[in-house]
């Protein structure tokens, strides 16, 4: 089979002139957060390993994790997980036929961004505010 492509179509590769619609923004963030979680897996496994190895390594880990920079990395991973989860739930809802219209997709993306933003704020407060 020979694939023919109509080459008279207008082509615009200048990404700075294209405004990404809200669902597109949520979609690329879903992908970026997923890849970031993949990159963060060794960190999470290391934390799990240290937390379980012994009472001493558990205490040491608590010290390490309370440092600002390390805590921020933890927060970034948590933020990625939260966004990926919420965007994933939106994906499943759309698979089920909910919010599949153009307007529904925009609203779904908006809800995903606002809801995950709120949850990420709560996660930040949970990590940093003394309880």
């Amino acid at each position: 089979m020979v694939l023919t492509v109509e080459d008279k179509r207008p082509v615009n590769l200048d990404l700075t002139t294209i405004k990404l619609p809200l669902p597109g923004f949520a979609s690329i963030l879903h992908r970026v957060s997923g890849f970031a979680i993949f990159l963060a897996l060794p960190i999470l496994l290391w934390v799990l390993d240290q937390s379980l190895m012994s009472e001493e390594s558990f205490g040491e880990l608590q010290n390490v994790l309370s440092g600002f920079l390390v805590k921020f990395v933890l927060f970034a991973i948590l933020a990625g997980l939260i966004f990926h989860l919420i965007a994933g739930i939106k994906h499943l809802l759309m698979d089920a036929g909910i919010g599949e219209t153009l307007e529904g997709a925009r609203r779904g993306a908006g809800i995903t961004l606002v809801l995950s933003g709120l949850l990420i704020l709560i996660a930040g407060a949970w990590l940093w505010l003394p309880m």
Partner: peptide, 20 residues
């Protein structure tokens, strides 16, 4: 590279789960 990393993570994870 991704496949290798994922297998390594899995084996590492199993080791952690049954190593304490």
């Amino acid at each position: 590279a991704c496949g290798l990393a994922l297998v390594v993570y899995f084996v590492w994870g199993v080791q952690i789960l049954w190593g304490f």
